[in-house]
Measured scan of single mutants.
Amino acid sequence: QCIKQELICKWIDPEQLSNPKKSCNKTFSTMHELVTHVSVEHVGGP
């Protein structure tokens, strides 16, 4: 049986000017979605 898990993006953008810096905190249900999000939204490139 599949256990529902919540994956949370903890990326902190080093360019943020606010202190304390905020992490992204978007939630995902699969590791694939999380990896895709980080690749596209934070790292950039294909």
Rank of each mutant, 00 (worst) to 15 (best):
S23G: 13
M31P: 09
E33Y: 00
Q16D: 10
K21M: 07
N19Q: 13
Q5V: 01
S39T: 10
S23Y: 12
P46I: 00
S29D: 15
Q5F: 03
V38E: 15
F28R: 01
W11K: 14
F28H: 00
P14G: 07
Q16P: 06
C2L: 15
C2M: 15
I3H: 03
K21Y: 09
S29W: 05
C24T: 01
K22L: 09
S29T: 15
S39N: 11
L17C: 06
I12V: 11
Q5T: 07
K21T: 08
C24W: 01
T36A: 08
M31H: 15
C9W: 00
L34C: 01
Q5L: 02
P46F: 02
V35Y: 14
V43M: 09
D13I: 03
I3P: 03
H32R: 12
L17W: 03
V43H: 11
D13P: 05
V43I: 10
S23M: 14
H32Y: 03
V40S: 11
E41T: 11
S23T: 14
V38C: 10
C9D: 01
L7Y: 08
S29P: 14
V35G: 13
V35T: 14
H32G: 10
M31W: 03
V35D: 15
Q16T: 10
K4F: 03
H42W: 02
L34K: 07
H42N: 00
H42T: 00
E33M: 01
Q1K: 04
K4L: 08
D13K: 02
V38Y: 12
K4A: 08
L17Y: 03
K10M: 07
E33D: 12
V40F: 03
T30L: 01
Q5M: 02
I3W: 05
M31R: 14
K21P: 11
V35C: 11
C24V: 01
P20D: 12
S39H: 07
I12P: 11
N25E: 06
K10I: 04
P46W: 02
T36K: 13
L34Y: 15
K4H: 01
E41D: 09
V43F: 12
L17K: 10
V43P: 13
K22E: 06
H42K: 01
K10Y: 13
P14C: 05
Q16V: 06
S18A: 05
S23N: 14
V38W: 15
P14E: 07
Q1M: 09
K10D: 11
D13F: 11
P14A: 06
C9N: 02
L34R: 02
E15K: 12
N19K: 10
I8E: 09
L7Q: 15
G45F: 07
S39F: 02
S23K: 15
F28L: 02
G44N: 10
E15P: 04
T30K: 04
K21S: 08
G44W: 09
S23F: 13
V43W: 05
T27N: 11
K22H: 11
T30E: 06
H32M: 06
P46K: 15
L17T: 11
I3K: 02
H37P: 01
E41H: 06
S29H: 12
N25F: 03
G45P: 07
C2N: 08
E6S: 11
N25G: 14
S18F: 08
C2I: 15
L7S: 08
G45H: 04
Q16K: 05
I8R: 14
S18N: 14
K4S: 07
L17S: 09
T30Y: 00
E41M: 05
K10T: 15
C2K: 14
G45S: 07
W11E: 13
K10P: 04
K21G: 09
V38Q: 15
Q1N: 14
P20W: 03
P46R: 07
K10F: 03
S39E: 15
T27Y: 01
W11T: 04
G44L: 03
K10W: 06
P20H: 01
Q16A: 08
T30W: 02
V43T: 13
V35A: 10
H42A: 02
S29C: 05
Q1C: 06
T30Q: 08
T30N: 15
S29A: 09
L34G: 03
P20R: 04
T27Q: 13
W11Q: 14
C9H: 00
S39P: 02
E6D: 00
C24E: 04
Q16F: 05
I8Y: 07
F28V: 02
S29M: 09
C24K: 00
H42M: 03
E15F: 07
C2Y: 11
K22Q: 08
V38R: 15
S23D: 06
S39G: 10
N19S: 09
S29Y: 01
L7C: 07
Q16M: 06
L34Q: 04
K22N: 14
T36V: 05
M31C: 03
P14T: 05
W11L: 09
L7F: 05
C24Y: 00
I3Y: 08
